[in-house]
Amino acid sequence: MKSGVLKEVIKNLFSKPATIEYPKEKTIIEPDARGRHYADLQKCIGCSLCMIECPTKAITMEKIPEGYEKPKKNPKGMYPVINYLKCIFCYRCVTMCPTLAYVTTPEYRLATEKPIFSRELSLKTLKGGEGDGRD
């Protein structure tokens, strides 16, 4: 018993700290962890199913603004905007989407002062390919 404690002390004296110095050091997260997700508007057909199914009503449907090329698949020109402060990251929208339009990332650092939405990330997909949402 005594020697067990001593062994523990010595082991911990020379081992690395168990804690991570966040945010200096990044926490290691699974690549498929449920983090920030947004709709890829090349695939989205504007059906509102994700909005209907969202348990926290974090998704609203908005019109694609002027100046963006409207995809042919999306006659209504609507797209989902996620309010990340309401979102509980259950990924119900991801699994319910009939065209698998949601892009998922393991990004979990979403703390901000202002409300944050998926608007910009989604609209980026329209211009064509630049930025996959990861920082």
């Binding site: 168990a18 699974e30 962890a33 259950c90």
Partner: peptide
Amino acid sequence: MHIMRDRELIMKAKEILTGARVLAD
């Protein structure tokens, strides 16, 4: 602290399995 440190391993296992440390959904 020691138990919590080792518990963190299990939380990691949960993350691998379900995609989130705590709320598995």
